[in-house]
Structures are given as C-alpha cells and as structure tokens.
Design a binder for these strands. Structure first.
Length: 406
RNA sequence: GGGGGGAUUCCCGAGUGGCCAAAGGGGGCAGACUGUAAAUCUGUUAGCUACGCUUUCGAUGGUUCGAAUCCAUCUCCCCCCA
C-alpha cells in the first residue's frame, strides 16, 4: 500500500512539514493519531474546511486515526492569523450552535464509528482554565519576542492586535499538548496559515513533556492568481445545502478557471492521479469535461450522489440544450391573477435585489424570458405566457430560474 | 495618563457650505467576443409610486435659506510619548 504521505505529496496537498522524513516514516510504519482543528466561526463549514476534511479522509483511509477538534474554546478568542482585522466576538450561544452544525458536517466524510475517528471540543478544557495557573504553567513557555516575529502576526502588527487575540496561539498550542497527553496525538495538521500556531504546539509538547510531535500544513485553496477560492459574491462557498444550494455549488466548480481545474481535482476529489494526469493534457474546450467531472465529484462528496446527479441534469438541461428538467432552480410565486409586472415578478422570484437593478438589467438586455431578451421593463407577464404554469427566466448568461405559478 | 490623527456609498479612497447620490480605483452586475473559461473592450453600480421624490457621508443635537463639509456632545479606531 502506498504511503499516505506520498499520496498527499503527489496531489500537491502538502505545503510545509516540520520533519518530512520522520513523518513519512512514522505514517508508513504505525497507526498514527493526528488532529485538525475547526473553529466554529460560522454555522456551516466551507470549502476551505472541506480541503482539511479531504486530508483527514486520506489519512483515515490509510489507517490513521483523526481527531476532529471543534474549537468551542478557541472561538471565544478568535484566531488573528493572517487577518487584517479582529473577528467579531461571538456569543457563547452562537458558538454552541455552530459547534453542533460542524459536528454534523464533519460526519459526512469522516467515519466516527468504533473510535475510527474522534471528535472533541476544546471548550472542555479551555473554558475552565485558571488564569494565573495557565500563565505560570503554559505562558512561561512562550517567548513574546519569538511570537512577534511569527508570520501570522505580521499583518496585525501593522493594524493593531489585541491581547485577547495574541493569546490564541497559546490556546491552540495547549490543545495539542492536551491531545498528545490524552490520545497520544502525534501530528497536528492544518491550513498553511496555521503554521505558526502548529509550531507553537510542537514546541510546547517538547518543553512540557519532552515528547516529539510533528506538524504538517496544507495548501490553501487558491486560484492560479493567488486569490482565495470558494468566495462568492454572497460570501463563502458553504457546505450547508440551505446556505448554498447544490445546484449553485455545482455551478461554482463548473465555472472555475481553466488554470485551476487540475489543481482542484487533485486537492478536493479522490479521483485517482492516473486519471488526473490524463486530464492534465487536455486543452481548450475539452477542459469543460474536466470541469464537469470536478463539479460532479465535489458535489457528490458534499451533497451526496443524488443531489450531484440532479445538479448535473439541471445544468445539462439549461446549457446542453436538452429537454426541460425538473431540477432547474425554481421559484413558486403563487397566483398572478390576470398578469403581473415583470419587475415585481423578478422580485418575488428573488432574481433581482431591487427594481432599479431590474430596470437596468432589462435596458442592458440581461433578462430573457424563454430565451428571448426582454426589451420593456414595464412588461406585464400574463398567465398565457406560462406553459404548465411554468416560465423559464434567465438573467445574464447563466442564472436561470423556473418561475412557477398556481 | 499626555499629545496628535481619523470614522465617507460593497471595499479602498477623494471631497472641507450650494454645481454631491458624492471623483478615482477595486469588486459586483450586464453587453460584445467565447467554451457555462480567462484576457480584452463597452455599459452600469442607493431606493422608489421616477423629467420628480425619499434615505445616505460613525451617533445625537445645533448654526444656516442650504451641511458629508461649520459648532457641541457622545461612541469607536489608529499613531506618538509615558
């Protein structure tokens, strides 16, 4: 069996390691317990987290034991790494709610049965810490001078960093120490922005317990231009099907740039490398096929096979010119009487945020009914324009909505 | 604790009494070109019952015919010194 380290390396997942040789050897010879932390800063995980989950899955498949650490305690403080501003402080209730959501989502990909993976919440040991004891015990192990030189604080030293956030590193380091003691957790994994925090934990384990632990970070999901991926106009690309519909999720991946497809296939799907290497040779229009594969696979992992197939079928119906399909995103606007103003209808269907925007769209030729551009924004849409109470409306090139009336 | 600077539309950032719904850039949206790609070019980007009206320049009051611009108080942020 192939060493999982080589798999991760081959797929381009690994960004930095503390001891590449030792880690590879360790992963090759024994069942290793490792951990990745997820701070519950929102009520759903997003694709950034998903990449971490993929790594966890690779590791679990190779026989290692993942610990998914939910940061119910660290979220009370907020990680300043790589951020330009302070996170908004969240209430305990919000954090507790988010923790629950995370738990559900992590279970999609990781098998937590029979202790094959463990889920813990650092609130369990962080919230009851005694300040002075913690300072004496843990705080004494950290050099402020050293911390200040850490990359993760760079941006914040220019903009301002509160003492609260400055403590984040200690808390995360303490997590590693706890997990090492309790579960013999030997490796901490994380996004590349976690490098400094991970080093802190390793250092702490050595100082307190003289144990050797390791760290490894993963490539952040960025475009070839270096921008973070998974950002949409509305925010992050959420894994929750309510916050981001499977169809929209699918569409996001279909629309990635040519230069990013292969990378995404390697990073967030389990498609064998042999196949990916074939696709790597593709060019031009053929890449669309690779994008379809990417979109389907990722959607399947996140939303399940059924949803992935629906999304694919809907896309096929709209863009492939095939027959009408039941899975096209729809909006039920109820009864329209003898007719309804076009803009009112678009508002009801949530296709436009305001009528002003709607007028502009029509003026610029961006609204289509049954694939015919609408020229008059005062148009009254009448029931006879509907077929079986359905009307296909398009905004721009790719935003479709099937409007349904009673 | 002392001194200084700041808060502007989605973001950055001009604007220092009427010509300001507010320059410029970024981002977003749409059009052309394409491959549901990128790059490029063009238009657009507060809301509305729309040749007009309403809300908007940290908050609240005030001066004025008229305030993003002036005054007062407040809140928050940054910088320098201690």
């Amino acid at each position: 069996m192939q060493n999982v380290f080589d798999i991760l390396l081959e797929r381009g997942l690994i960004a930095q390691t503390t001891h590449s040789e030792e880690i590879r050897e360790l992963l090759g010879k024994e069942k290793v317990t490792f951990y990745i932390g997820f701070d519950p800063t929102a009520d759903s995980l997003h694709v950034g987290h998903f990449l971490q989950m993929i790594v966890m899955k690779h590791m679990q498949d190779a026989g290692h034991r993942p610990i998914a650490l939910i940061g119910g305690g660290t979220a009370m403080v907020g990680d300043p790494s790589g951020r330009t501003d302070m996170r908004q402080m969240m209430t305990k209730e919000t954090i507790a709610h988010n923790c629950e959501q995370f738990k559900k989502q992590l279970g999609m990909l990781i098998d937590f049965s029979d202790d094959k993976a463990i889920m813990v919440n650092n609130a369990d040991w962080l919230l009851d810490l005694n300040y002075v004891e913690f300072l004496r015990d843990i705080g004494s192990c950290f050099s402020v001078n050293k911390m200040l030189t850490a990359e993760c604080f760079k941006q914040r030293l220019e903009k301002g960093l509160s003492f609260l956030e400055f403590n984040y590193m200690l808390m995360q380091s303490y997590d590693f120490l706890m997990l090492n003691r309790k579960y013999n957790c030997k490796i901490e994994l994380g996004g590349d922005d976690q490098w400094s925090n991970i080093l802190g934990g390793i250092e702490l384990c050595r100082r307190k317990d003289q144990t050797q632990t390791y760290g490894m970070t993963f490539t952040l999901l960025t475009t070839s231009e270096g921008k973070k991926m998974g950002k949409t106009a509305k925010g992050a690309l959420w894994l929750d099907s309510e916050k981001c519909k499977p169809y929209d999720f699918y569409q996001y991946w279909i629309n990635v740039q040519d230069s990013d497809v292969i990378n995404c296939l390697k990073l967030i799907t389990f498609i064998p490398m042999d196949e990916i290497r074939q696709m790597e040779k593709w060019e031009g229009q053929q890449l669309n096929e690779a994008k379809r594969r990417l979109a389907y696979e990722v959607t399947k992992l996140v939303h399940g096979e059924e949803e992935a197939k629906k999304a694919e079928a809907a896309a096929q119906a709209l863009f492939g010119g095939s027959a009408d399909n039941a899975d096209i995103p729809s909006a039920d606007i109820g009864s329209i009487g003898d007719g309804i103003n076009l803009l009112d209808m678009l508002m009801l269907a949530q296709m436009i945020p305001s009528k002003g925007e709607g007028r502009r769209l029509v003026q610029q030729g961006g609204i289509y009914i049954n694939n015919e551009a609408v020229t008059d924004f005062n148009l009254t849409v009448t029931p006879d324009m509907f077929e079986n109470n359905e009307l296909l409306v398009r905004k721009g090139k790719k935003v479709y909505k099937k409007i349904i009336i009673k």
